[in-house]
Computed example of a mutant assay.
Amino acid sequence: MIDYFFTRAHQASSRSSPAQARAFFLQSRKQFSTTVARRVAPVPLESSEAKSAQTYCSNLVRKYDSPSYTLSHFIQPYALPAYLAIRAFNIEISRIPDIVSNTTIGQMRHQFWKDTINKVFDGKPPSEPVAVLLASYMNDTGIRLNRTWFQKIISAREQALLRPGFTNVSALESYAESTYSTLLYLTLSALPLNSLAADHVASHIGKAAGITAVLRGVPLLAFPAPPNSHSHNPAGMGLPTTRNRQRIVNLPLDVMSQSGVREEDIFRNGGNAEGLRDAIFNIATRASDHLITARTLARDIRSYQTPNHDFEHIHDEGHDYAAQIGERQSEEGRKHELEKAYGAIMGPAVSTQMWLDKLQKVDFDIFHNSLRTTEWKLPFVAWWRNRQSTL
């Protein structure tokens, strides 16, 4: 039924103006909210419904985000349902640009997920696998995840759909913080762990992962393949695969200007565009700097030292460390919290570093074929890092 709704919405938008398409959506959404997205009470994690939802999320992550699936083995078993639901949620949101024909339909899809998350936190999840699994986890464990962080991810992705590209590196880092860092905050909160020290480390790892994800997407956006053809964006929701995607370069404009890179030159010459490797080097260096900072923070915390800089997002919505700020937290307490968070933050740090290493080996040629292959060494490197307790 969900497939049918969005197919009808697409058909309406293809023959109507955006205003007419929006009117169609608003009219249909009333029926959608009462019949298609049937609200159900949270079910136990051991129920067949929750197990089916977890299987769906697990298969989705394994097929379209294999690094996260591989790294799920380092997540505490009791938190695995939440981890899979959070990662599946991220896949569903990130693939929206590939399953819609225009931004109006994209906004509809983002609104669907905003409503879905609100229903989950209201205790009336729709019969959608991610929603069912999230609601079941919170209901069974009593652990409350953060509604604000889910909505923040959706909003950041929606803004990227409406206004692709970044004016400067700071805008790119802000996007990475609002998406990849926030995914890590959600994972940590599912443990549950509300830790200033752990979130500080996770913020830098998430920024590195987000910047790297944008770099990985440069060839795909500059030379888009047929819709739904690349690994992290599966076909979905029953939409026709006839979308004509606009070619864009989403590198920060300030870096492109400093390196003398022109968008038209990239479209003509690909990886041989003048100044492109310099621009990629500068951006990759920023991602690497965040990983170095995260390792330094972790090392200081483990050696009972106070971090040499404050967490810049300490006052952002969703971050509440009143108890930890009001009274001096012991160095032993910070170390214990970091150890509890280790499985959740180690994996993204390792996978991000491995891809940056591959990029360096090909002299920052972002179009090199080796950068789009599966990293078969990831399980072994992650296992070794886990034994050494290093990021």
Rank of each mutant, 00 (worst) to 15 (best):
A323V: 07
T306Y: 05
R262A: 09
D289K: 14
K335W: 14
G347F: 00
T285I: 10
T373D: 10
A135Y: 00
A53K: 02
Y342D: 01
M354V: 05
Y180R: 12
T306L: 14
A209H: 12
S58H: 05
I292Y: 09
E331C: 15
H200P: 06
R95W: 03
A156F: 05
V362T: 06
K207D: 03
R29K: 14
I345G: 00
T187W: 03
V100R: 11
Q246L: 13
R387P: 05
L172S: 01
A37H: 04
Q324C: 15
G275R: 05
L191P: 01
E339W: 09
F166E: 02
R22T: 09
P42Y: 03
E274F: 07
Q324K: 09
K114C: 07
R295G: 10
P97M: 14
L186N: 01
A88E: 00
Y64W: 12
N90V: 11
F166N: 02
V255H: 00
Q159T: 15
R87S: 01
G260A: 05
S58E: 13
Q107P: 06
W383F: 14
E92V: 09
E331L: 15
G217D: 10
T104L: 14
Y64E: 04
F223M: 04
Y304P: 03
V61A: 02
K30I: 13
T104F: 07
R38Y: 13
I314R: 14
V218Y: 00
D278E: 08
I99W: 00
E46A: 09
